[in-house]
Design a protein around this nucleic acid. Structure first.
Length: 261
DNA sequence: GACCAGGGTATAG
DNA sequence: CTATACCATGGT
């Protein structure tokens, strides 16, 4: 499968997911849930190699039916910073991730830098997930709810005070007191409320989960970097009324630009 | 060895 | 409603 106008290096660095790793020149291992694929960069396009039975999963994951550069070009208006960010981020894509993995990952993410987040997730995966292989490349699956249930997460995974957030979350998921598929059916505001009931989930983490895994493409997570942009470039108030449609992709461009420009 | 990290909670005012 | 202390640890 070929994804046109797709830059895997940028997606890997974009901070929306934490399990894409470079394994060779222009080659990346992409892991999601218990699945993996190999992504090869060929010019502006990316070729995805995966198991035949998983093709639909990756089609959805990469949102292959849409051209995100085209959506991004609709943000180009009269604002220099945003125009620069969109041009700088050509090839970025908004992925459609697994909601459980996404929620766990972003609870871990608070007050951590991206390398530290990745270390914690890999450590959890290699401990509680399963070892698998795709086209000769080994990987560990993301641990399922059942695989994490009842496990002590303190002290071993660099989680710090987040360990008890996760333990409580896993317990509620296991008992089906939290149903992310149900939240996926809700509108943005209702979903935001439901997610924020979870201990350790505030505005930012909830918006990440809504945007990256619950198909709410107008969610707009504001972290330290985004707040910095809003303060320095927009006098403390972002003009949301000018960018109503697909704000989440715009947020991705801004975050990426601010970090790597 | 300081400083910061894709924040959230609890408490005080 | 806003302001502030505190949180536990790793990366740079």
């Amino acid at each position: 499968m070929i994804i046109k106008n797709c830059n895997m290096k940028k997606i890997m660095e974009s901070g929306q997911c934490f399990r894409i790793n470079k394994i060779d020149t222009n080659k990346y291992l992409v892991i999601s849930k218990d699945l993996a694929c190999i992504a090869k960069q060929i010019g502006n396009d990316t070729e995805i190699k995966c198991n035949k039975k998983d093709e639909d999963y990756w089609l959805y994951y990469f949102d292959m039916m849409q051209d995100h550069d085209t959506i991004g070009s609709t943000f180009i208006k009269d604002d220099k910073y945003i125009n620069d960010a969109v041009n700088f981020g050509k090839g970025l894509r908004l992925l459609k991730q697994d909601n459980y993995e996404c929620l766990v990952s972003f609870i871990i993410s608070q007050r951590k830098n991206i390398p530290a987040i990745k270390t914690s997730i890999e450590s959890l995966s290699s401990t509680f997930g399963e070892k698998r292989e795709i086209f000769g490349v080994e990987y560990s699956t993301f641990p399922s709810i059942e695989q994490l249930y009842g496990k002590s997460l303190k002290d071993k995974f660099g989680l710090g005070y987040r360990a008890e957030y996760l333990e409580k979350l896993v317990e509620k998921l296991y008992r089906k007191e939290i149903d992310l598929e149900k939240i996926k059916q809700m509108n943005y505001n209702k979903g935001l409320m439901e997610l924020k009931k979870i201990k350790g989930v505030g505005d930012k983490v909830a918006n990440c989960v809504l945007l990256y895994s619950l198909n709410k493409e107008n969610a707009f997570p504001i972290d330290i970097w985004m707040q910095r942009i809003i303060d320095n470039e927009f006098n403390g108030e972002f003009p949301f009324e000018k960018y109503k449609h697909y704000k989440g992709l715009l947020q991705l461009y801004m975050f990426y630009y601010e970090r790597y420009k």
